[in-house]
């Protein structure tokens, strides 16, 4: 089954620092911008929800037609957002947790300036591998 999934990491300043289309569906031309729009709009919801719970994983918080936005907020208020059309809460949670670990490893790099774009190709490969595993 072809799935759509768009993963994005948004820094605390609402700047996307990592973007990846991890779904298996064939890419539509305007998919990238639609996904950005949906995820960007979902930030409004995250803003409200993030302070109501102590859990990092906020579950599915927003939806657009059949696309669901799941969000994971780290302690530093970096938001890992996944736009997906499959319902697999456990998988998504594991995915987020592992990506969070990867992200922390990126942060530990003294040459990485927090809030700047993540350009590490190794990070990219690992995220995509995790996406294949869990989503």
């Amino acid at each position: 089954m072809a799935t759509t999934a768009c993963f994005i990491i948004v820094s605390r300043n609402d700047i996307p620092i990592y973007e990846a289309e991890v779904g298996s569906a064939t890419k539509r031309e305007d998919a990238a911008q639609l996904h950005q729009f949906i995820l960007h709009a979902a930030l409004d919801i995250v803003q409200d929800l993030a302070w109501t719970t102590s859990a990092m994983f906020l579950k599915a918080i927003d939806r657009f037609n059949d696309l669901v936005v799941s969000v994971y907020v780290t302690a530093g208020h970096t938001r890992l957002m996944l736009l997906h059309d499959s319902r697999n809460d456990d998988g998504i949670k594991s995915f987020f947790q592992e990506v969070h670990e990867l992200y922390i490893k990126i942060l530990l790099n003294p040459l990485y300036l927090p809030g700047s774009r993540i350009t590490s190709s190794q990070f990219d490969t690992k995220v995509r591998a995790l996406a294949r595993k869990y989503l």
């Binding site: 911008q33 950005q36 729009f37 960007h40």
Partner: peptide, 10 residues
């Protein structure tokens, strides 16, 4: 002024 390139361009 947002940094979401696809949105801005679109």
């Amino acid at each position: 002024g947002i940094m979401w390139g696809h949105i801005k361009d679109n």
